[in-house]
């Protein structure tokens, strides 16, 4: 009787699934686009408030109209929106209200630093958090596992900015060992420049790792501890597969699936979340750019940074969705049973 069915890899099905998801992302993107457009216009005072200096009310109406026209703010909203989209499509993000520098340029300068900072710290955070989480999960409820849990919770509870301040104090001021300011020092070339960038990364990355380890640790620990009694794990024991092998080959891979999702969520999140650390260490990334833009009521920059942040989160989410089937065959091919 039973003939093993060959796996059915339905191409069209996969394509449709991807398209369906892409549709969802596009919808979210469209909403985000609208929100970023409306945000400065909806806020009290509106974009004009800062344009004309301290107080718009004091401005000469003629000057005011002139300024508004210069920024296209005298047009009806739909026209403004259309222009906004058109410019966006050309990657023309406008000019900063503070100094008139093209916003696209500012973002292009800042984004790589943030990606470097966040990328490095998320990879490190994930590696350390997962390793510790696996240890604690396998020893759940026992002395060592509990100690580890308590330690990580304590670390995780410390706010990033505070840890950053303390880190500057110790490593920068007292030991003088590490740079605490910016991403580079001028005057380095070649390998020295790489080393320079790396030493500038140490403290901010360290702080982000300390602040971020908890999530990975908890997700991993919970998932591993639950998997300890999964039917296929218990059965592998019963079949006489040695304990270490059961853990390595049967328990961990399915148990670590949720961690992958967590990784991508964290990546997206941290791009905005790094703001505080970037401020503490005066790191020239996107977060700082955003913060300065808000502080300076710099609407074009604000819009652009917000949009970049949303897009980053969406891209990370999409990556998580698309790479997940590589790890979990159950979502890759459908059974023909």
């Amino acid at each position: 009787m039973s003939v093993a069915s060959s796996p059915v890899r339905s191409r069209t099905g996969l394509v449709r699934a991807v398209l369906g998801r892409a549709g969802g992302y596009l919808a979210v993107f469209a909403v985000a686009l609208t929100i970023t457009f409306l945000l400065p216009r909806a806020l009290p005072g509106g974009p004009l408030r800062t344009l004309g200096g301290a107080d718009v009310a004091d401005l000469d109406p003629a000057v005011r109209a002139q300024v508004a026209a210069a920024y296209g703010l005298d047009q009806p909203l739909p026209v403004q929106f259309w222009r906004y989209l058109r410019d966006l499509a050309r990657l023309d993000l406008g000019e900063s209200f503070n100094g008139g520098r093209p916003v696209a340029e500012a973002i292009a300068d800042a984004l790589p630093w943030t990606l470097l900072l966040v990328g490095t710290s998320v990879l490190l955070t994930a590696a350390i958090g997962v390793a510790l989480g696996v240890i604690a999960g396998l020893r759940r409820g026992r002395g060592k596992g509990n100690l580890l849990l308590a330690g990580v919770l304590l670390l995780d509870a410390a706010p990033a900015f505070w840890v950053g301040m303390l880190a500057i104090l110790f490593f920068g001021v007292h030991l003088g060992a590490l740079p605490t300011f910016g991403a580079t020092t001028v005057g380095h070339t070649g390998l020295a420049a790489v080393g320079d960038v790396a030493t500038h990364l140490v403290l901010p990355v360290g702080v982000l790792v300390v602040a971020g380890i908890g999530q990975f640790f908890l997700v991993t620990r919970f998932s591993v501890a639950s998997a300890l009694h999964a039917p296929h794990v218990e059965h592998a024991h019963a079949r006489g597969i040695p304990h270490r092998r059961v853990v390595a080959r049967h328990l961990l891979r399915p148990a670590l699936l949720p961690v992958h999702t967590q990784l991508m969520i964290e990546l997206g999140w941290l791009v905005g979340g790094a703001l505080v650390v970037e401020t503490v260490f005066a790191y020239p990334g996107l977060g700082r750019l955003t913060f300065d833009a808000i502080q300076g009521r710099d609407y074009p920059t604000m819009q652009a940074t917000f949009l970049t942040l949303v897009v980053t989160v969406l891209v990370m989410n999409a990556l998580a969705d698309l790479t997940y089937p590589l790890l979990d065959p159950r979502t890759r091919t459908r059974g023909a049973a």
């Binding site: 399915p254 790890l327 159950r330």
Partner: peptide, 13 residues
């Protein structure tokens, strides 16, 4: 050892 019929003793991944 043969596991219970309905639930799988096989590693899903």
């Amino acid at each position: 050892v043969v596991p219970q019929g309905a639930m799988t003793g096989l590693n899903p991944v």
